[in-house]
Design a protein around this nucleic acid. Structure first.
Lengths: 234, 234
DNA sequence: GCCTCTTTCAATCGATCGATTGACTCCTCC
DNA sequence: GGAGGAGTCAATCGATCGATTGAAAGAGGC
């Protein structure tokens, strides 16, 4: 057998719960998708509820592997570098959010936990939201440092709000504009506009904004020199 | 009898579906809350699904009565007036969203329709989202007119994203900051920061921002003189 | 071979779901 | 007073829900 039953159940539960919600999915469908027996859910997890909580916890623990958030682990050395990094993050995050990646799944679970919290909500905050808001706050502090320290988390929420809106309200936005967010050109234009709007909100000089947007389109590392910023395990 | 059974069913359905979702509520609970019999749902609407759709349609048709959106029916005569109006709208909208008003119910239904659309989604777009985005776009066009016309709807989405984020992610934001958004001071601070962030994103002059925020705290009509801008039916 | 522990499986549990029935009450019109 | 439609009601339908059972299958130790 390729994967053990508990993992297969968690995978199936993640896909189904994320797309149709807790009440919208029955344990039989989960078991079928996982090629397992219904009773295996009770055997391995205790019940439907416990499976859901375990699935959310696991999904949130996978946060460090999401590429957009990895970007924010860098420490930009100047305001301009920080602005470039933020542009890169915004584009990367939006790509993950509107594509079919794990970011979208996380966002959907995030949304469900927000509207009806489960026992896993503490894990969602601790393992996912708090670290991400921290990292975003730090980058923002580099861009617009002349603020009281307690302002940065709120500004981080603003950036998150702008981005998540295109996930939460995607159905409506696509219906209003008749422009699908699936493909590249429209999505890239949205990312650019969000970046511009955000940098202006962070009091970035106009010429910095243009340069940051341009530099953020370069492939990998922000400036040519300096040590490689990779901090992941491998 | 105070209200007719169909209205009582719609009222009960609105409260229950908005808070727990379509799958999370049974028709018996709806009927109980409405002091009606289960069979009355089938008799008056045809079934659970039809009741839900009728409820959403009715809720969206009540949009013009939401106070924040009424504000945007004004036509500000200057950029500064427009900025003041936007500040007022942001504060008013956030108050409705985080309070217990009909705005919050609409937002919750909006959210559910976005994540799993029903047959009522066209009505949501036509009766609620499109007019509101239009009104917001027009105000934004007054504040930052030197843009291509197709940019304004997107900027309106940005404002909506910033605001709705405090509804969608409210659970997490309150847990992160340990500051409840129920009462006034914190909520007002959030509204001020959103307004400042937005106006900067709309390239408003800094001295205009300060004055707009200050003026927006005045009670009713923006400037002292001029005709009363009320355009509602009554 | 035999015992033990883990895991899987078909079958079934009681509860609840939305839908539906047929009798009953109430009001109106003739 | 009686016919007829509108609306309400308790009761029940089959289906599905999550939970649970006991037997069967597999793996490892002796």
């Amino acid at each position: 057998m390729a994967v053990r039953t508990p993992d297969a159940l968690l995978d199936a539960a993640e896909a189904l719960f994320a797309s149709r919600g807790y009440e919208g999915v029955g344990i039989r469908e989960i078991a079928d998708r996982a090629d397992a027996n219904v009773a295996s859910i009770r055997y391995h997890f205790g019940g439907k509820r416990e499976l859901y909580v375990a699935m959310v916890r696991r999904a949130m623990r996978h946060r460090p592997t999401l590429s957009a958030w990895q970007l924010l682990e860098q420490s930009p050395r100047s305001r301009r570098d920080a602005a470039t990094l933020l542009c890169r993050f915004i584009r990367n995050f939006l790509d993950g959010l509107l594509g079919d990646s794990r970011t979208a799944v996380c966002a959907r679970l995030f949304q469900q936990e927000a509207s009806s919290p489960s026992e896993a909500i503490d894990d969602v905050v601790r393992d996912f939201i708090a670290p991400n808001v921290d990292a975003l706050s730090r980058t923002i502090a580099r861009i617009d440092p002349d603020r009281a320290p307690d302002e940065f988390p709120r500004l981080a929420q603003f950036v998150l709000g702008l981005l998540l809106h295109y996930h939460v309200s995607r159905t409506f936005i696509e219906r209003l504009t008749d422009a699908p967010l699936d493909r590249g050109p429209n999505r890239a234009a949205v990312a650019d506009d969000i970046a511009r709007f955000t940098l202006r909100g962070l009091r970035t000089r106009e010429d910095f904004i243009d340069r940051a947007l341009e530099e953020s389109r370069a492939p990998a590392t922000p400036p040519p020199a300096s040590a490689a910023p990779k901090g992941t395990s491998g």
